[in-house]
Design a protein around this nucleic acid. Structure first.
Lengths: 123, 123
DNA sequence: TCAATATTTCGAGAATTCTAGAATAGTCAA
DNA sequence: TTGACTATTCTAGAATTCTCGAAATATTGA
């Protein structure tokens, strides 16, 4: 990911309303949520919400599809992964021996820790 | 991590100069880098750099310590891990195949979480 | 076609952020 | 103390972002 795209993505998320929207979509999963339902869930005005969705979409963090009268928005998980990977690229100069002993601290951060799928070794 | 702190951290990173500084410090490891060296590496004016370092420190993303005439800045890896964990909290509604790669990234963020810096003003 | 629903676009004022020059403060050595 | 070095704070104008009312666009059903 290019730095300029990362700045765009971070700028998009650096806003209380947009961060709330994005996290709502991240929790909702790939099926997504209709704009109107997002407006209801966040208490936003329709035009303000639309502007914020537009910023998030412009940053590539969310996608959309029309379904009848509604437009369904969903998180762009791959883009999100790219952003997180960018932030910790070459962390500690790539010295794995420094990083390894402390990896256990973050175990609780795994969002699907109770699932059957393990995340070991996937980077 | 509270949403308002996440917004603060994301705002701090949503700036080309500050993102470059932060990534430089993430790569540098726990030992950190002197402000003057950061200025040289990024081509920033001293006062502009100082303002940007102040924003990053205020967001809790970096810490500092004095060493002689220099002030050494270093990444706050634990804070970084908290931010990444916050972004993917309750992600994907149980779809492990989506979450797994993200969780692996969050674990790597803990790689250097052994800092003993003072972190200024994050309350 | 007309009306209702769902969402986006336009416009402008308020608030915030960014940058650089100048001045200030802390540290060290002689 | 003086002087060199390192870094921060102050300040103001320029640029950008945020928000909401109003108007416009797109879709569906009668």
């Amino acid at each position: 990911m290019k730095p300029q795209y990362a700045v765009g993505a971070l700028s998009a998320l650096a806003h209380p309303g947009r961060l709330e929207i994005f996290r709502l979509l991240v929790r909702a999963g790939p099926e997504g949520v209709a704009a109107g339902e997002i407006a209801r869930a966040t208490g936003s005005l329709a035009n303000t919400l639309s502007a914020n969705l537009s910023v998030l979409a412009g940053a590539g963090l969310i996608g959309s599809r029309r379904e009848g009268r509604s437009i369904i928005y969903s998180a762009a998980y791959e883009r999100m992964r790219e952003l997180l990977a960018f932030l910790m690229e070459d962390c500690c100069g790539g010295n794995a021996e420094i990083c390894a002993p402390l990896a256990a601290i973050a175990e609780r951060a795994a969002c699907c820790a109770s699932s059957t799928m393990r995340s070991s070794g996937t980077a």
